[in-house]
Amino acid sequence: MRVALFITCVNDTLFPGTGRATVSILRRLGCEVDFPAAQTCCGQMHVNTGYPEEGVRLARRFTEVFRDYDAVVAPSGSCAAMVREQYPRLAGRGEEGFAQEVARVAPKVHELSEFLVDVLGVTDVGAYFPHRVAYHPTCHSLRGLGLGDRPLALLGNVRGLELLPLPGAEECCGFGGTFSVKNPEVSAAMCATKVGNVLETGAEVLCAADNSCLMHIGGMLGRRETGVRTMHLAEILARTEARA
């Protein structure tokens, strides 16, 4: 199987550790991973902020870069949801042939936990992480992709990990891409609720399938000097006893 990694622009630029962790998990499970260097961004920020023309150009680029792979794995629920849910709607805005390209590529795009559980059929990736962890199901992974309890199943099999239930887990953290700066007061108020709920769990680590949301929550956890770390799901799943 030719598996391409869609790292996403945010991970590529700000959270390369998540990308390296994803590569390490996939290789550990016997996948041959490729990173098409021409990839940049799925276009979500542009589309969701009201700039569909720029967004479509990036979407077009995405479909060209990934058209020949059997599967595309992204360590981001939000970006995977963009491709799978929103590209088909953008299809009408693109040039001729774009709709067919979307139909060809979009269904092959998987968020990491989906790929592990549904495609590889694995819920135990042999990870070891002896810490108290709370999991925040990000909106696009929960309601957009319908990841359900796949990430929890994966975390549940991590040795040493104590999974703590997060109150109000399904409520948005208030990031919302440019929402966080266009409506910063409401965004911060939502984040404050999330941070309060995280602290209530007593977790050392807050985990999610999206670094953008974690950047937001983590930004407030850090500003308030709470001592709680944020970690992408991939980075926890990549930890083994050998590496710990």
Partner: peptide, 13 residues
């Protein structure tokens, strides 16, 4: 209200 993430030493690519 929020800290910025640290820019890493090296991008993934």
């Amino acid at each position: 209200t929020r800290d910025l993430p640290e820019i890493p030493e090296e991008s993934f690519r």
